[in-house]
């Protein structure tokens, strides 16, 4: 899951980014509204953590522009004001959820995961594919009931593959969803991570390479 943090308070943005990376999110930061719009146009985000009072382009304006656009990222608005009018205002403009500053970091993470699930209505809270179970909230993976220890990047890649439920995911798509903008598109980071993920999951190999297209989870295992 890839998230854009649009927040002008540099320290806050940095702390959220570090915290989200700990939770195996791919997270980028935009320090103002114009930069946020630019990054949204270039990258495919699942969600935006949007500060309402952004410089250059106001958070409300970003909401307005994204609302109704097909495939637009979901918006979790951060607002410092807590009056009823403010809260209702943000939601009316098209925000999908809001949190009042100061918030609990754990709550931010839980709400982002819930938003992501809302985006793909068929997505159950716990993903299961064959004998692999992936719990996004606890960030745990089990194979045949046995706990599998994964790095954050490996976890993100597995989550993207499992969300596709057997559909083929290209290497570019994996790079887009599981890495943030610091990733170099010409490295073989995806290949390396998939290979280490296979090793951790063990035999029989649950990930299938579709030559020239990408990767997918093998279906129909029990």
């Amino acid at each position: 899951m890839r998230v854009l943090i649009a927040e002008d308070e540099v320290f806050l943005a940095d702390a959220i980014q570090r915290g989200l990376r700990l939770e195996a999110f791919a997270a980028d930061v935009a320090a103002d509204g114009a930069e946020a719009l630019e990054k949204i146009a270039v990258n495919d985000y699942d969600a935006i953590v949007l500060d309402r009072d952004l410089p250059l382009v106001h958070g409300d304006e970003i909401c307005r522009r994204l609302a109704g656009q097909p495939g637009a990222p979901l918006i979790l608005m951060l607002t410092a004001a807590s009056t009823l009018a403010d809260r209702v205002g943000g939601l009316e403009l098209g925000a999908d959820d809001y949190l009042v500053k100061p918030f609990e970091f754990e709550e931010l993470v839980a709400r982002l995961r819930a938003l992501h699930r809302r985006n793909a209505p068929a997505l159950p809270p716990i993903l299961e594919q064959g004998d692999i179970r992936l719990d996004p909230f606890r960030r745990e993976v089990y194979r045949s009931g046995r706990f599998v220890r994964l790095s954050r990047k490996e976890f993100s890649v597995l989550a993207v593959l499992m969300e596709a439920a057997g559909g083929v995911i290209s290497a570019e798509r994996l790079l887009e969803k599981a890495w943030d903008e610091n990733a170099d598109p010409f490295t073989n980071a995806v290949r390396m991570t998939v290979s280490s993920l296979r090793k951790r999951l063990g035999a029989p190999d649950p990930i299938e390479t579709v030559a020239g297209v990408g990767y997918r989870m093998r279906a129909g295992r029990g």
Partner: peptide
Amino acid sequence: PLATMKTILQV
């Protein structure tokens, strides 16, 4: 700033 401090500490 309170939100910033809180998030920095929680993270």
